[in-house]
Design a protein around this nucleic acid. Structure first.
Length: 482
RNA sequence: GGCUCUGUGGUCAAGCGGUUAAGACUCAGCCCUCUCACGGCUGCUACCCGGGUUCGAAUCCCGGCAGAGUCACCA
């Protein structure tokens, strides 16, 4: 196999959505899998769509996603420039060469004439009107400064075909293809042309992109052929859908990488999940690091049908990543979310992290989970009643009073130690452990559900605060029973 | 509408002529359990339809149907 060179060629529109990122990921994985080169090229030939700062978004996204390009605008590999707007003269030069080779021709038709081409059937197709212009006529118009475009000269008969690495053999009748514009009247190339010229000049031999190009690829091949260039291999990818009808796109929101980051998703989990949308490894493994993805990536595993983006599954995967974190890692990476929650400045993040790791799938769930820690005050004592555990209010009071007697003498205020001490008490009195832990947890938190049990809550709150709350709750119970 | 492609549970997705049609997410139930989670177990639900080919078809062929893509001086 020749040295593999793939590329990702986004247009700087301001954000990178999941579908683009996956295309980028596959191009990267394929290159790395084969010890090849992954090139980043910026396709900014459409100045009307250009957005300031958009290129930075691309760099930032690749970096946090863990995708590193070997060549690009910021990493010259000898095939630059890597920004299309800086290659303008190259395209014009090649377009003229193509005209000489008969693969293209000048067209001076006005927009009005083009619009009148309708021919009733509804679909218009350019009628090759300017192809019949003589060289002298063309020269005269050019000299007169008439605006022009350059069009590809597609044969009217025959069939163009190629083999796609995922979709197999593709054959399209030439008559169905139009003489598309290669050079626009502003002198800039269209995607159709710039892409082919750049891919060739940058020695890209594996073109990996969305399947929206599947049926126009024969047209690009015609260009390669007209120049006498070797055609690249093609790998077209099925789209990622929002639902069965709609493709994922920025129009529906929440589909770009940075939005998910803001919601508390881990970049490695997002990358892992999108790798799985449209591809699966031989052993059907699901949780994979970038390194493993590179190792396992294989064209055979790419699916031909569109896949629907399922955030529930991505969330689950994200949770799997969180479960593997140490409290230290969790505290560091979730810091912005912890800072914005009820535990900010009041509790030890490491202790909170330990409780949250198995209970949170994405960081944005943190706030709700710890909200009960915001304050502690009057609550409904009826919560102490528990039929299944046979806990009545008087029993709760009795147990809590007992706790209040024993606990102050506990020096090592840790989850484990407290558990041992309280367990002993329960056993001594012949009670189920729940009959003591349950009331205590309620007494310490005043919350029906908490991320952890009585002893974990006690450790988190600390001895002083725990005893204060216990005292308060005993008072509350006494009042209720009076 | 023409052309191109696709069609396995609600979702992702194994399967490549012979399987009790994997697995994961979701959902439901059970166990564990001091609430909530984690974990463990069980369950529900699928080969788009119709014809062929074949001893045998989810797998191959044809035709329907459904969905997607494309038909720009957007990429």
């Amino acid at each position: 196999m020749e040295k593999v060179r793939t590329r990702f060629a986004p247009s700087p529109t301001g954000f990178m959505h999941i579908g683009n990122l996956r295309t980028c990921l596959y191009a990267y994985l394929f290159a790395k899998k084969h010890n090849g080169t992954f090139v980043l090229r910026i396709e900014d030939t459409d100045r009307e769509r250009y957005v300031d700062g958009a290129v930075d978004v691309i760099y930032r996204t690749l970096q946090t996603a863990g995708i590193t390009h070997d060549e690009g605008p910021d990493k010259d590999g000898g095939y630059g420039p890597y920004i299309q707007s800086e290659r303008k003269d190259i395209y014009m030069r090649y377009a003229r060469e193509l005209v000489e080779r008969g693969g293209a021709y000048y067209c001076f038709c006005t927009k009005e004439r083009l619009a009148s081409l309708g021919d009733g059937s509804g679909v218009h197709k350019y009628d090759k009107h300017c192809l019949s212009l003589s060289p002298q006529e063309v020269k005269a118009k050019l000299d007169a400064g008439e605006p022009f475009v350059i069009r590809q000269n597609v044969p009217t008969e025959g069939v163009s075909e190629y083999d796609d690495m995922v979709f197999g053999h593709i054959a399209v009748p030439n008559a169905d293809m139009e003489d598309n514009i290669l050079i626009k009247s502003d002198g800039m190339p269209t995607y159709n042309f710039a892409n082919v010229v750049d891919d060739h000049l940058m020695a890209i031999n594996y073109v990996i992109r969305g399947m929206e190009y599947l049926s126009s690829t024969p047209k690009y091949n015609l260009l390669y052929d007209a120049f006498g260039w070797e055609r690249p291999h093609y790998m077209h990818l099925p789209p990622i859908m929002k639902d069965a009808q709609r493709k994922l796109s920025k129009r529906y929101g929440d589909t770009n990488f940075e939005d998910f980051l803001a919601k508390g998703y881990l970049p490695e989990a997002i990358v892992n999940y999108i790798a799985l949308l449209g591809w699966s490894p031989k052993d059907n493994r699901e949780k994979m690091s970038m390194h493993e993805l590179v190792e396992l990536f294989d064209v055979d595993g790419i699916s031909k049908s569109p896949s629907i983006f399922d955030e529930a599954k991505m969330k689950w995967l994200n949770g799997e990543y969180i479960k593997c974190m140490t409290p230290r890692e969790f505290a560091d990476r979730a810091k912005p979310f912890l800072d914005a929650s009820a535990v900010a400045g009041k509790f030890d993040y490491l202790k909170v992290a330990k409780l949250l790791i198995p209970r949170v799938e994405i960081f944005s769930e943190i706030a709700d989970k710890v909200e009960f820690l915001r304050g502690f005050g009057k609550y409904d004592p009826a919560m102490f009643e528990h039929k299944k555990m046979k806990i009545t209010l008087p029993l709760a009071l009795e147990v809590l009073t007992q706790c209040a007697e024993v606990l102050p003498s506990v020096d090592e205020w840790t989850d484990e130690n407290l558990k041992a001490v309280l367990g002993e008490i329960a056993q001594k009195d012949g009670r189920k452990s729940g009959q003591i832990f349950l009331p205590l947890r309620l007494a310490l938190t005043g919350a029906a559900t908490t991320p952890g049990g009585a002893t974990e809550m006690a450790e988190l709150l600390g001895k002083e605060e725990s005893l204060r709350r216990l005292d308060f709750s005993i008072g509350l119970l006494k009042e209720a029973l009076a």
